[in-house]
Amino acid sequence: MSGYNKPLPLITPLSKVFYDACRDKKLMYQQCNDCGEIIFFPKHLCPNCMSRNLGWKESKGKGKIQTFTVTYEAAPPEFAADQPYALAIIRLDEGFRMMTNIVECDFNTLSCEMPVEVVFDAVTPEITLPKFRPAVK
């Protein structure tokens, strides 16, 4: 038993591709091979042109903080012990967005548009979560 008691992502045949790559420290997203649409969250059907001809690509893992919040109280119960923790929406340089935690920093220094980079947190033997930290200059 890992002792990790926070919610784990739902693993489907599609999300398994993403999380298997995370375990190898790779952040993957999709691009439509027909129309070029950048796609995340991963899908089977292109939300732009309805093609099913989608391919995986590896992100460089760099982006900017679109917005964030540092939760001090009233978190969902499984996260209460982690308070305060920083939750953010990141705009990746490749043109997709994801929700994540910001780690390895003083939360008081965070701001919108701050450059960040991915780090990988192996929370269980099966699941590695991509998180972000302020970009090393």
């Binding site: 926070k6 992502p9 693993i11 978190a75 969902p76 929700m99 935690n101």
Partner: peptide, 16 residues
């Protein structure tokens, strides 16, 4: 699949 693990809540929404 991609948001549940991070501790989102309606208060976080207000914060965002």
């Amino acid at each position: 699949e991609y948001e549940i693990p991070y501790g989102f809540s309606q208060l976080a929404l207000a914060g965002f």
